[in-house]
Design a binder for these strands. Structure first.
Length: 252
DNA sequence: ATCCAGGATGTAT
DNA sequence: ATACATCATGGA
């Protein structure tokens, strides 16, 4: 059954949101985007001021996973403090922070170290197709594998997927999450600094990967990940606020 | 051929 | 605490 959401007075750019590189859990097929969660698939597409969506085998709420209720206009007003921010807002209007699943999000950002976005996406898809559960609806879909499943994949197999030195990080982290060393439910109950320290116990998880995981899958909107680009732009545009120390720069 | 891409880790200051 | 080399691999 197809349903729809009215996007009038609600800035939302579907393509920018799903292809800017914040999430690696969405794919495009026949002009519709889809994502797999649990045993279901959510498809979304836009026509004019309507966002249409369809659930297959589950009930995934697009408002939740695409954060459609975030008050973007209010946020724009609040952060529009200079010319630089104004340009950024205009150029990326309608780009929303997504709400991803914890484990796939975590693994994708461990993969992301020194990689290009399209490669991260490719590897994320390969992991799902090779190790994830297959779902059959109008066609075949693949879940991202559970921690339990990914933990039993040999490191050598991961290396064969051109993950390089990240193979051991992923292997170890999958094992740790599977053993419950770090647990999603617990992370959501503690505050940002503590959750961040917990995540950094995982192999291959440092400041940046921890912040991305916290922001995109655990609702910690106070997280401000600093990648090479943000660092570069920070140096250029905000020399006064810039700091070599990750946390200090992030807070400014 | 050389450099860089959504960084993290181990080791030496 | 901070600086540096090192870690695989693909693409420009």
């Amino acid at each position: 059954m197809t349903e729809s959401i009215d996007l009038k007075d609600k800035p939302f750019d579907l393509r920018k949101t799903l292809e800017c590189g914040q999430t690696f859990s969405w794919n495009e097929d026949e002009d519709k985007y889809y994502t797999v969660r649990n045993d279901g698939v959510l498809k979304v597409w836009r026509e004019g001021e309507e966002l249409y969506y369809e659930n297959l085998g589950g009930e995934i709420d697009p408002v939740e996973v695409l954060r459609l209720d975030d008050p973007l206009e209010e946020i724009y007003e609040k952060i529009n403090r200079d010319e630089v921010m104004d340009k950024a807002i205009v150029a990326n209007r309608g780009l929303r922070i997504v709400n991803d699943e914890f484990f796939p999000c975590l693994i994708s950002y461990i993969t992301s170290s020194q990689m290009q976005i399209q490669r991260i996406k490719k590897i994320q898809d390969e992991i799902s197709e090779r190790f994830g559960k297959e779902l059959e609806f109008d066609r075949n879909y693949y879940q991202f594998p559970s921690p339990e499943r990914l933990a039993e994949v040999p490191e050598e197999t991961l290396r064969d997927m051109n993950l390089g030195y990240r193979a051991s990080y992923i292997k170890k982290t999958a094992e740790m999450v599977n053993k419950g060393v770090v647990e999603e439910g617990s992370l959501k109950k503690i505050d940002y600094p503590k959750a961040r320290e917990e995540l950094k116990k995982l192999s291959g998880v440092g400041d940046k990967v921890a912040d991305c995981t916290l922001l995109f899958s655990l609702d910690f909107l106070e997280s401000f990940p600093i990648d090479t680009w943000i660092r570069k732009i920070g140096k250029e545009k905000y020399p006064g606020r810039y700091s070599k120390k990750y946390e200090e720069f992030s807070e400014n």
